[in-house]
Design a protein around this nucleic acid. Structure first.
Lengths: 212, 212
DNA sequence: TAGGGATATGACCATGTGGTCACATAGCTT
DNA sequence: AAGCTATGTGACCACATGGTCATATCCCTA
């Protein structure tokens, strides 16, 4: 957690530091990211930085926490409504929300992408500590739920499907990030919808040709 | 490419250097990996290293080339036979071969995993240069082929499916790597087969419950 | 045994890192 | 205006990095 001095800062300055850090950590990964660069970007002295944050790790965990909060907040409304939906609608919603998030907060999305690549174990575990594995549990629950409702064939292996869904959302996020990245590219809403529907179609109907 | 001096080295020494480098690059990523550490591991002086290799990049590209060769060689026989197989058999073969490779050459598999995370653009592009995108093209060809044979429903979006397959193989590799890692854990053959079959079952039949 | 080309070596260089600390400055209180 | 506390600052530290180079060592030929 940052020191009080950091929170006493005028909002502008605080935000500049935050966005500089987000920028750096979304491009470089924990070890390679540089405190010096963050200081330069946000026009503060090295000494000042260490009056705001205990550590490089302190900063990193704080930044990741902000990103996670933002994402949770973004999804919370969607999750609330989703109880009434069918599995396919639920999953479609998650997909589209994910894409929307990546477009609305490309920096945070890039940060998440970078985190998924992180090699530094101490940085990784410091961030995880709590609130991870959410997506895995979420998927398993959704799947079991849909099975009891009879929406999903009971012969489907829940664990395998959960893993498939996870890897798929990860891949889609990555794909979208590459496409829109940091630039404010205006994507074709229809294209995205069609692509998502193609994936869902495969997932639900399988790829086997049943006509012969 | 390494200098002649490197290839003039006695085989033992050469192999030690190679394995030290593989070890380092499979744990750390291009920027974080350390030449000093590689020298220490392989008991050579820094100066000697730079008599064998022009650069850090020179080493990296050479090591990656070795790994790629090994993998291509490993898959080549499988690919040859696969023309006579159905799509599901082809894909099953690729899956199992991938798992087998990860188990037989965990270091190389880890190297590949690390490469897929690589942030350094120059290192990435130096390695790619040729022979990449193979898997994507391979998948698309397999899919189109299976469509004309009537094995796959023509309403399936080839690009979406290709992406799905790619992310899936990536996820499985990652999963297997985490499970067996560097230790020679003897996995249960049946477990692996069952898991792969579960994934393929989902892929081919879809998850929709057709019984009502 | 003398000489010479190839190879081995580690001190050294410039640069960058995360982190510290003595000091300067600002702003509030008496 | 004096004093005091909270904040700002950049030179500095020890360390690690990729890369160089003068020198020492080896081994083969004459």
């Amino acid at each position: 957690m940052p020191q009080d001095t950091f929170f006493n800062l005028p909002e502008d300055k605080r935000n500049l530091i935050i966005s500089s850090a987000v920028d750096e950590f979304s491009k470089a990964g924990y070890n390679t990211a540089s405190i010096n660069q963050i200081c330069k970007k946000s026009n503060i002295a090295k000494g000042s930085f260490y009056q705001y944050f205990k550590d490089k790790l302190d900063l990193y965990v704080y930044i990741m926490t902000l990103a996670i909060k933002e994402k949770v907040n973004f999804f919370s409304t969607a999750i609330e409504e989703s109880h009434n939906l069918t599995f396919i609608e639920q999953f479609r919603l998650l997909f589209l929300k994910g894409i929307e998030f990546a477009k609305k907060h490309p920096q945070y999305a890039a940060l998440g992408e970078q985190f998924s690549k992180e090699n530094d174990e101490s940085a990784k575990s410091a961030v995880i500590k709590e609130g991870d594995k959410q997506s895995e549990v979420l998927f398993i629950q959704m799947i079991e739920n849909a099975k009891t409702k009879g929406e999903i064939d009971s012969s489907v292996d829940s664990l395998a499907l959960s893993m498939l869904l996870q890897s798929l959302t990860g891949a889609v996020n990555k794909y979208m990030l590459n496409k829109f990245g940091n630039i404010g590219y205006e994507y074709n809403e229809d294209d995205v919808n069609n692509f998502v529907d193609s994936l869902l179609h495969i997932l639900f109907n399988g790829i086997r040709n049943n006509s012969n």
